[in-house]
């Protein structure tokens, strides 16, 4: 599974050293990830390593391996506050220097999995130039909140989603929604994807290959959306060439936010 995940064409692949690995196998898992990273079998697919939390005895060895192995992104689980990210950042910088890796080339994604993490999300998202995204992890968070998953509009996750998303947008980084645990429930997965997408999340953490295509489809613009976006860009271009300040398409004014949205649609279509 580790070695063949590239055949499913994900955008990025995350190697887990945390919950998926028993304590007795942390050492072998590290070497497995290291050699897999070094073999560069993933081509253009972004490589992420989820290390163990900073409250465990494993995270420093995990980090050493991941940075030296060339992982593009480190995912820090159970992030509670800014200090933890700062500690991580210093350590990454030190290892980069030691192994001759370009300083700053290792990025960070933090996962928010608790009430205090959510409350501190705004600071966490903005505290490091290495930070590329912030993700919400639902399971531990809901335990911390003394509640559990419901179906429908999931009010229990609303505050966390909104907070994490705002933190991300304010810091100009990406935001990822919670993973959906039941890999056999496509309907439930799609319901959740739509909630996240409508709120404005950039994507979602996935735990099974079969979820990849579903997510891509959900984020893929429809043909009318894509056609419209292309027209917007074209009209904007024409206006610019003609030196026109304001343009309209089918009677609607096209201003910078509309152009940005259209660019995003085209970008998404290219990616999915």
């Amino acid at each position: 599974m580790l070695s063949n995940s590239y055949i499913y064409l994900p955008d990025s692949v995350m190697f887990d050293l945390e919950d998926a690995v028993s304590i007795a196998e942390k050492d072998t898992a590290r070497l497995l990830v290291y050699n897999t990273l070094k073999a560069k079998i993933y081509g253009d697919i972004e490589t992420v390593v989820r290390i163990n939390g900073v409250d465990t005895p494993f995270w420093e060895a995990d980090l050493e391996m991941a940075v030296r192995g060339g992982a593009e992104v480190i995912r820090l689980p159970k992030t509670e506050n800014v200090n933890e990210v700062k500690e991580l950042e210093i350590k990454i910088g030190k290892i980069e220097k030691e192994c001759g890796r370009e300083f700053g080339s290792t990025k960070i994604i933090t996962a928010i999995e608790s009430a205090s993490g959510v409350v501190n999300a705004v600071g966490i998202a903005a505290c490091s130039s290495r930070m590329v995204a912030i993700a919400l992890a639902g399971f531990d968070y809901l335990v911390d909140m003394q509640t559990e998953r419901s179906s429908g509009t999931e009010p229990e996750l609303f505050f966390a989603r909104a907070t994490v998303l705002h933190a991300a947008r304010a810091a100009k980084i990406d935001a990822f929604d919670v993973a959906y645990g039941n890999v056999n429930d496509e309907e439930g997965f799609m319901r959740e994807v739509n909630i996240a997408k409508n709120l404005g999340f950039n994507g979602k953490s996935l735990i099974h290959p079969r979820q990849i295509e579903l997510l891509h489809k959900a984020y893929q613009p429809t043909q009318p959306e894509l056609d419209h976006a292309r027209k917007v860009i074209e009209a904007a271009k024409t206006a610019e060439e003609k030196g026109l300040g304001v343009v309209s398409l089918n009677g609607k004014m096209i201003d910078p936010p509309v152009i940005q949205a259209a660019q995003r649609v085209i970008l998404l279509a290219d990616y999915s």
């Binding site: 580790l2 070695s3 072998t28 070497l31 497995l32 290291y34 050699n35 897999t36 073999a39």
Partner: peptide
């Protein structure tokens, strides 16, 4: 196993 997996397992067993 792929070569990188073989390498990893040998190293882990040796360590």
């Amino acid at each position: 196993a792929l070569d990188c997996v073989i390498a990893a397992r040998v190293q882990a067993a040796v360590y």
